[in-house]
Design a protein around this nucleic acid. Structure first.
Lengths: 215, 215
DNA sequence: CATAAAAACAGAATTGACTCAATTTTAGAA
DNA sequence: TTCTAAAATTGAGTCAATTCTGTTTTTATG
């Protein structure tokens, strides 16, 4: 039966995450001292380290929630993509980008990304890599879907294309969170500009206005 | 005249970098304590912080040397590219990738990348962003060169293409340094696979073996 | 309802990056 | 040479993440 211990545990987890999320937002990642998180969550420092291996893992738990929501939202687009390759990509990547600052500030993203490269084998590092892979797979799924529908040429290497699209978006996103003054619409426009090259290459000929056989 | 003070300064810089490089390699970035670096360089802790704002900046100085060498090696390829789009890209990116572990271990790269996203406004963060931009520009220069020669279609958005190629390579490189068991040849092959999609899209029709009109 | 084992907790102690006030060294004027 | 201001060096001290060790709470069992 769900004993007292399990309930207390879940409750403490929640309190720690909530306290951390609030403090990260208020004071930034570095500014949020473990001592303060412990105090706000009404647990001791030792208890926090019993639940999470290090400060980064706490942030990791928050990032996970955010990315999982995004993945969920993306499923709809993959199941029912716009009838145009450029728009399909733009819609999916748009969802990723627009959701990205819901729970996480740019500063939190920077920290999360930093930790995931710094400690790729920590629980968070592995989780983050898993999330990246899941996003890549979702883009690949979209590409496969577009090939099925007949909007993307069959002879294109779908998985490679999906990874290329993800890598490019991700790198642009990294640069985006590194510059505090960068705005989401600019980011989307830049990604679209680059994807246009790909779209022209992979689209079945009749579709794209830019590439008709008889101009 | 080059006074005593200037000479001593240069000498101390050199000693600090050499000590740090040795210790980073031996003990890893975290494992190399500032105290140990100071001892090995025969300066005090305070002096190190007089020369570099923080531990990351010391690593930054080493990364800079590495990337500048790579940029230098790349200039030759841009000036005189192989007469085939796929090979031209592969040669340039190959130089980047093959040089990458000369002075820096994967662990050092991980730390460097992490710091550059964590503190994008620190001296190192800005320098790192500058290096990335320089690499992007070099790829763009190659693309422009290939357009001049007539190997790449004129109507392609060269700068966007260059950035796309760089972003993809860089992201693959990040994943590469995150997995200790990943090997350079695999990395190159994966990058080639993705670039193949692009090459097919941008090449002037007569060139590519994969795309002849009469098979 | 006692009780021993297991799990979780608390917070003092440790560790290591970084700061800062005091001291030493250098450059150059008198 | 001697003196002074500027520049550089030093290392003990500070601060915050993480570890460690005893204590407390929960669970399962007789």
């Amino acid at each position: 039966m769900s004993g007292l211990r399990a309930r207390q545990k879940a409750d403490r987890h929640r309190r720690i995450i909530e306290a951390a999320a609030a403090l990260f937002r208020e004071a930034g990642y570095e500014g949020a001292k473990i001592e303060a998180i412990a105090a706000q969550a009404e647990v001791s420092i030792g208890t926090i380290y019993n639940y999470y291996q290090n400060k980064g893992d706490i942030l990791g738990a928050i990032v996970s929630m955010e990315v999982n929501e995004v993945l969920n939202a993306g499923r709809g687009v993959v199941a029912n993509p716009p009838a145009n390759v450029g728009d399909a990509l733009d819609t999916l990547l748009g969802i990723y980008v627009e959701h990205s600052l819901h729970y996480l500030s740019k500063e939190m993203w920077r920290q999360a990304m930093a930790i995931s490269t710094q400690l790729p084998d920590s629980p968070f590092g592995q989780a983050y890599t898993g999330l990246d892979r899941a996003l890549t797979e979702q883009i690949r799924a979209l590409v496969a879907r577009l090939q099925e529908i007949g909007l993307v040429r069959q002879d294109i290497d779908g998985p490679a294309l999906g990874e290329l699209v993800f890598n490019n978006m991700n790198m642009m996103f990294i640069e985006f969170v590194k510059r505090d003054e960068a705005k989401i619409p600019e980011l989307r426009a830049a990604i679209r500009r680059q994807n246009r090259i790909l779209v022209a290459a992979i689209v079945v000929c009749e579709e794209s206005g830019a590439d008709r056989r008889n101009p």
